[in-house]
Design a protein around this nucleic acid. Sequence first.
DNA 1: GTTCGATGCGAACACTGTACGCAGATCGGA
DNA 2: TCCGATCTGCGTACAGTGTTCGCATCGAAC
Lengths: 244, 244
Amino acid sequence: MAAKATEQNPVPSVWARARPTSDQPSLSRTTIVREAIVMLDAEGIEALSMRKLGARLNAGAASLYRHVATKDELLELAVDEVAAELHVPSAGSGDWRTAVTEAARSFRAAALRHPWLPSVLGQVGLVYLGPHLMSFSERLAGLFVEAGLAEPSGAMDTVLSYVIGMSTTEAAWLSTVSRSGASEADFVARLLPAAQETAAGPGLPAGPREDITAAAADPAALREQKFAYGLEVVLDGLALRLNG
Amino acid sequence: MAAKATEQNPVPSVWARARPTSDQPSLSRTTIVREAIVMLDAEGIEALSMRKLGARLNAGAASLYRHVATKDELLELAVDEVAAELHVPSAGSGDWRTAVTEAARSFRAAALRHPWLPSVLGQVGLVYLGPHLMSFSERLAGLFVEAGLAEPSGAMDTVLSYVIGMSTTEAAWLSTVSRSGASEADFVARLLPAAQETAAGPGLPAGPREDITAAAADPAALREQKFAYGLEVVLDGLALRLNG
DNA sequence: GTTCGATGCGAACACTGTACGCAGATCGGA
DNA sequence: TCCGATCTGCGTACAGTGTTCGCATCGAAC
């Protein structure tokens, strides 16, 4: 649009020429990645397209490819950028259990803030680790080394697998809920009859059913409690291996 | 093509008219889902398109929509079809730990046979459960009820989260490896220098590095051992709650 | 024999990720 | 001061996607 103006207007004003095309500080890899994350958070992973992302940055789709090789690379960069939000306490500062718990909570919190993260992790994998993810896993492993566990890397993988699995499930659930437009409690209430119908017959003795009705009351609290319970289980299992 | 022939050929032969368009038993929901799984297994999730799937069934893409509402629905059907491969022992037949272990191994095996499964689960979530997934989780929950655990549903979620997280990571890894064209051992060897470079500096005392070199020797065995270790940890943590 | 619902499908629509090549800006050196 | 070289933005195009529409064909029921 600006280029068209300079071409059609025979009197180039200084004001028209000042910063000809860029209102923003132009394009850069970090700008692009950050805006992609904003978009992913707001509209989910299937709403992110290079054209829409470009439009948001007052740029064309092709311009993005000057700073990012491919859309998958962009997603990897976004994952690592989000990994910068993760927090794991320094080794040597108190109880290893509370430290690991804090790291785990931090991962879950990030996954719930960015529900697209688990699904991207499921496709891209943890193979080509960016610096932030690298530092996260190194610091986490350090906690288990310090705790005196015989197999620190196995311990880390166990905890990470649990945290990833739980967060993936939660994030997928939240995505579905938000896609439905209803609140979480309403969605549970709407889902309840169908679930009971399918779960009829020689099922369980009403254990899960209490579960569901409890979820209708305060779903978020129940999810948090479930996460804490499972984490405690895993940490207990690891604690048994401390003096082995 | 067949339609064109009948139109142009003024002498319709019986042989040309016999089963005019269908060599296969035509199209059906199960045929479509099964072929989709074959395709997903062979070429991965991003290679599955409605047109290619239709072509494989000697059909057009539009025909598939007579039996399947949308591609996402097709994926959900594929997930539940795969869930039919899962095996969990009946409650009351022996030790609950070995029973749960078998169910977990069965899940992992299915995820490695169908590496696209975890990534689909990450997007679709476990919300609208099909009958097979439903039966799997019911039977699994039954094992924990029978074991006498105070919170069977929490226990099940813990184990499932661990299994899902580990399987997701493994499947994503295997997908990346197979995309690279190399064998797993070769891929590890090629990745080793880069990992060591990034992991340099004030890192760990050589714990993870042994890990990597061990992986180069027999990667599949190491993965299996890691899975078993973590599962044992989780089950130990649950066992502590048996007499609570 | 005729109508009717189910099925297959060619063509089209609105998108997608990405490659190519041109325009303009910026900058180091002569 | 000018001149190339290099970098950045982007219009356009290509091949492919999921999905819809309307038409053709079919087997069965009346």
